[in-house]
Structure formats: structure tokens, C-alpha cells
Design a protein around this nucleic acid. Sequence first.
DNA 1: GATAATAGTTATACTTTTGTAATCATTAAT
DNA 2: ATTAATGATTACAAAAGTATAACTATTATC
Lengths: 148, 148
Amino acid sequence: MTEPNINIIAENLISIHPLLYKSISRPLRAKSPITPGGMFVLGSLKRLGTLSMTDIGKCLDMPKPHVTVIVDKLIEEGFVERQNDPKDRRVINIVLTEKGLVNFEEIKRNSTESLKEKLARLNEQELEELQTASQKVKEILLTILSKE
Amino acid sequence: MTEPNINIIAENLISIHPLLYKSISRPLRAKSPITPGGMFVLGSLKRLGTLSMTDIGKCLDMPKPHVTVIVDKLIEEGFVERQNDPKDRRVINIVLTEKGLVNFEEIKRNSTESLKEKLARLNEQELEELQTASQKVKEILLTILSKE
DNA sequence: GATAATAGTTATACTTTTGTAATCATTAAT
DNA sequence: ATTAATGATTACAAAAGTATAACTATTATC
């Protein structure tokens, strides 16, 4: 009887998606020079460490030319650096800089301010539950969606 | 000590966001004539019933001209209809049609196929946990993000 | 009744994202 | 050594989303 579960989970995720878009992507565009795509790239680099251009594309399911555009902009800002791979000179590895890390964290803080205000209205128990639940969703999705 | 919880929750949501973008918005664009924005609108209409143009904009935090563009396209497809509000002739209410509802469900099915395949690899317990967790995240976010 | 406010559309310009094809450099394969 | 495959960029086109201002119609306010 796992079939119905899967459909319910998919339905839940589809419902959650616009809520995150509204409360994260939109404030982000309003309050920072980094685009949502740029933040996705920075997040991947922070979580996984140095990645090649191809890795980034696979990781976010992003067309390679788009990765180039985004990384170009991140380099302009000094948030990441290109590094040649000594093992394979075709490969270019992207590294998060100290400045990139610091700004990433700050942008996250700024762009989630209004979200946090709304979270602050929840009571202790709801916060506990939401923390546990969001943690679980994050962990499981990361494991099944990061593969290959 | 609720402060740290709120930050952790925000971090979790920021991590979940690109995963949903990758596993829902991207397949959607590839496999359907409806844009992510259009799906957001259909989802709001299904969940909340008839909404005015302004309501839709507030609900999704979308600029009004964008709502007009999206609704125009949904009308072309026959997925929604415009209805004049008898109480206030400035207002135009948007109603989900039978065709819109049916297609909305079908598009959801199609565009989450590969997501469901990945979910299917989880064991019974993980599925249970993910279902409960995603349900909880959805419910709480809906309550705090729908206000006003 | 004149003025202000609201709902929605239209117009316009711009940015971001998507998609495809062509190209260059390097590596792998035979 | 030639050919094929890979990693990345470039160039181009098009779709989707964002933002602002101007405009019409209607309602609310005074």
C-alpha cells in the first residue's frame, strides 16, 4: 500500500512549492543582487564543496549555458572563483570564496526576514513540529534527488 | 529559546526550495503547456475556490499585470473563466472550469512521474515519515503564509 | 457632484531562465 | 594517428517572470 502514500507526498510537495517560491524567491529578488539561480548555485557549493560546471548543471538540473551565465555573474561579484583541474584540463572547478560564503549567509538572513516574522507567531509546539518536519523533508529529498 | 528554531527552519526551507524547483517546476515546463505560474494559479483556485484577480495576486505575491497575462493564457486553454461580480462591477472573478480541474490533475500526474519513481525507492518507514513531515510542513506554511 | 481610491487591463522595458546549435580544447578509444 | 566523446563557452532565439506607468471603469468619500 505504498502507492497512495507516494501520490499524497507528491501532492504535498506541489502545494509547498508555491509557498516557498512566494516566501523565499520573491523576497530574494527584491532584496538582493543575486538571482534565485545564483543562490541555488551558492547553496550547492556550500553543501557539496567544489564542483565542476557540469556537476553544478547536473546537481540543479540546469542547462550548461545557463550555469555559465550564472557563474559569470557570481565571479563578477567575487562570490566564487574558477580553478583549472590539474587532472583534466577541460574541467573548470568552481570554488566558493570567503566573500561568497559570508554574502550567501547574509542574503539568506535578509531575504527570509519577513518569513521569520511570520514563523515567530507560531507557538513553541508548532515550531518544534515544523523544525522536525522540515528537517525530515530536507534530508529525504536530498538523498533521493541528489543521486546521479 | 525559539530564535534558533526559526533560523533552522528558514535554513531547511531554503534547502528544500531548489529541490522542489528541480523536481517539480522543471519537469513541468518540459512536459506541459502550462507554465509554473499558471499551475500556481490553478492550485490556488482549486484550494480556495473562486478568486478575483487581486486575490490571486495577493495569494501568490504576484504583480497584477502578470496575473492578467497568466489568466489570459489559462482562458485560452479553457482552464478558467472570467465572471463579473454582481456586487462590484469592477471585480472580475476567476473560476476553475471542469476542464481546468481535470487537466490540472493530469498535468500534476505527468510532471511528477520521475519524482514518484524516486520516491518509490524509499522503504515503508521513510515513506510514512516523509508523508507525515510533508503534510505538516504544508499545513503550517499554508496557515502562516495565507494570511492577509 | 467633484475627487479620491480601487479593480483590472494595456503597454513597455527589462531580467531571468530555457533551449539549441556551433565551436574550441582536451581526453579517450580504436 | 585518427576519430569519437567530453567539458566548457559562445551565440542566438524565445519564453517566462518582474516592474512601472498610464489608462478605463467603477465605487467610495467628502
